[in-house]
Simulated scan of single mutants.
Amino acid sequence: GRGQATALIDVCRARDEYFEETGVYVPVCSDGGIVYDYHMTLALAMGADFMMLGRYFARFDESPTARVNVNGQYMKEYWGEGSARARNWQRYDLGGASKLAFEEGVDSYVPYAGSLKDGVNATLYKIKSTMCNCGSLSIKELQQKARLTLVSSTSIVEGGAHDVVVKDRNHQTVSYQ
């Protein structure tokens, strides 16, 4: 029930304290909800050593699920590891009469993203660009130098393209923002 960012920051803080006390470094995984490039950069900046990227990879051509049209937008099927669908694959067999009593993951759709090669290349360029903007040449430096700032939804809109007509390069349609 905690926000992923808050949980990650708290766990990484405890990991770092443990390292200072014992000299034993325990890598931390950011697990859950990572879909877009900026999610990865945020997770790394907050202290993650690696990430679970199921939802990110599910968006690409190479994922085994069908590409479907949902309300005029192409999507790919996605289900989380803690979903009923994953449980049906018996990944969570507890043995005997015991069954997993609750569902943690979702069975849903994610926005279609095209080719894996193109998507991963773009992601790596974006992460490197953000690291460069923070003056960081390594993930460790990013974790030390990055400053996360809470912003309002209005500042997000005003910080992006607004009061222009944006061209959709893929479908040659326009949307007003």
Rank of each mutant, 00 (worst) to 15 (best):
H39V: 01
V11H: 03
P27K: 06
R87F: 01
A58L: 06
K76Q: 05
L116K: 04
Q4C: 03
T173E: 14
D93E: 13
Y74W: 14
D107S: 12
F57D: 00
F50A: 01
A5R: 06
G96H: 07
N88L: 04
G160C: 14
L124A: 09
M52P: 01
R85P: 00
G114I: 05
K117H: 06
Y38A: 02
G82W: 05
D93R: 09
F102Q: 11
N69L: 11
E104R: 14
V174W: 14
E158I: 01
E158H: 08
Y38T: 06
D163V: 03
K117W: 03
Q177K: 12
R55G: 15
V165R: 11
A101V: 02
G54K: 09
V174N: 14
T6G: 14
L42I: 14
V157N: 04
E62K: 04
V106D: 07
L42P: 02
L8Q: 03
C29N: 15
L42D: 01
G23L: 09
V165N: 06
M52K: 08
A7E: 07
R2K: 10
L42Y: 08
A84C: 00
V24L: 10
S155T: 12
S152M: 01
D37Y: 10
G72S: 08
D31C: 08
Y176W: 04
A5S: 06
Y78R: 02
Y18V: 02
K167S: 11
R15N: 07
T6R: 10
M46P: 04
V166P: 02
H39N: 13
K99F: 02
A97S: 12
G160D: 12
Y18F: 15
S30I: 00
I9Y: 10
G105C: 11
R91P: 00
Q172P: 01
A48I: 02
P64I: 02
E158N: 11
Y56V: 01
F102K: 13
S115H: 13
E62C: 01
S83A: 09
A7Y: 00
C12G: 02
T41R: 01
Y109D: 03
M40E: 03
M46Y: 10
K128D: 09
S115E: 15
E62P: 03
Q177R: 14
W89A: 09
R2G: 07
E77Y: 08
